[in-house]
Computed example of a mutant assay.
Amino acid sequence: MSRIKAPFRWCLILVALVFAGPALAVECSEMTFEDRGYSVCKVDTATDELRLFLTDPGGTPYGTFDAVDARLAGQGKQLAFATNAGMYHEDRSPVGHYRENGQEVQRVIANAGPGNFGLLPNGVFCFGPGRAEVIETKAYQQRDVADCPNATQSGPMLVIDGDLHPRFLEDSTSRYIRNGVGVSADGSAAYFVMSDSAVTFHEFGRVFRDMLQTPQALYFDGNISRLYAPQMNRNDLGRRMGPIVGVVVPASGE
């Protein structure tokens, strides 16, 4: 019987390990902008399976990434990336508009109001097969709902047609951990970003406008923000979430 030399044998083992793991197509990495750190996950809308998650089939809110993953395991799938996707009430129902797989859970909320959500203009992150968009709420109301089978509303908008939200102040002292999403001009890439430290809206908006160069971007939330990114060894714990957005891949070994 022939023997395989040790170096070659280890190469075979390494190749086997690589192909045994899930296809984590989404790209997550640490980036620095203006001396502050950010976790950035880039989703390719043409190849990555992006989904929204709110409640299980029995109507119970998932609340955690682990609960979503447990549900996906029964389908032979798992999360490759996920983050909170909009503001929610104490019962974890969405504050704003929410559509999942063509089913509307919450109507569009277009009026100004208290808090960040009501700091108009706010907007909607919508996506379907092969594309994603961030759309200002009033513009969204003029669209055919079939254009957005999956949609989650939040606010405020961070970047609008290449400009920062008009209410953002460069000298603001209001700093929080923040997360949001920006979309490339052609809708082929969605960038999910979370700050590593407390930042102002003006600082956070510039990440999307100047570093990622997304013409439209939307704020998701502040201190409750959570990130699931196995590539970065992250599975953030804490307060239970409402809407969750994530990329789904075949489970390991599938």
Rank of each mutant, 00 (worst) to 15 (best):
I224F: 02
A23C: 08
G74Y: 09
R92Q: 15
V26G: 05
G130Q: 09
T45L: 15
G113P: 02
V124Q: 02
P166I: 01
N84I: 00
F220L: 00
R71Q: 14
R167P: 12
F53A: 03
D56C: 09
L227S: 08
R131D: 10
A85H: 00
P149Y: 01
R143M: 04
Q106S: 11
A217I: 06
A189Y: 11
A217T: 08
S2G: 14
L72S: 11
G58D: 14
F220E: 02
M157R: 02
V105L: 09
H97V: 09
G182L: 12
Q103W: 06
G123W: 00
P230R: 06
D69F: 08
P166A: 01
P166F: 00
E170F: 07
K42S: 15
E100S: 06
R209H: 08
N122E: 00
D144H: 09
P243C: 02
R234E: 13
P121H: 00
Q216W: 06
C28I: 10
R107E: 15
F220A: 01
V43P: 01
G253Y: 07
L218I: 00
D171I: 09
D48Y: 08
Q142D: 04
G242R: 04
P250K: 03
V245Y: 04
V248L: 00
C28H: 08
T137D: 02
V183E: 07
A189K: 14
V199C: 01
G59S: 11
R143D: 03
G76A: 05
K77G: 10
R3P: 13
M1K: 15
V108Y: 00
D56G: 11
A185V: 14
N111D: 15
F220D: 02
G182E: 13
K5F: 11
D163R: 14
D171M: 13
F65Q: 03
D161P: 13
F125P: 00
F117Y: 05
V207C: 13
A73D: 12
A190L: 10
G222L: 02
F19V: 12
G242W: 03
V181D: 00
G102H: 01
Y176F: 04
N223Q: 04
G102D: 01
R167Y: 13
S39L: 08
N150F: 00
T60I: 13
G242M: 03
D186P: 12
T83S: 11
N223V: 06
A132K: 02
G123D: 01
G86T: 00
G113F: 04
F19H: 06
K138A: 07
I224S: 06
V105D: 05
I224W: 03
A217Y: 05
I109Y: 15
L164D: 04
P22M: 05
M232Q: 14
A85F: 02
S184P: 10
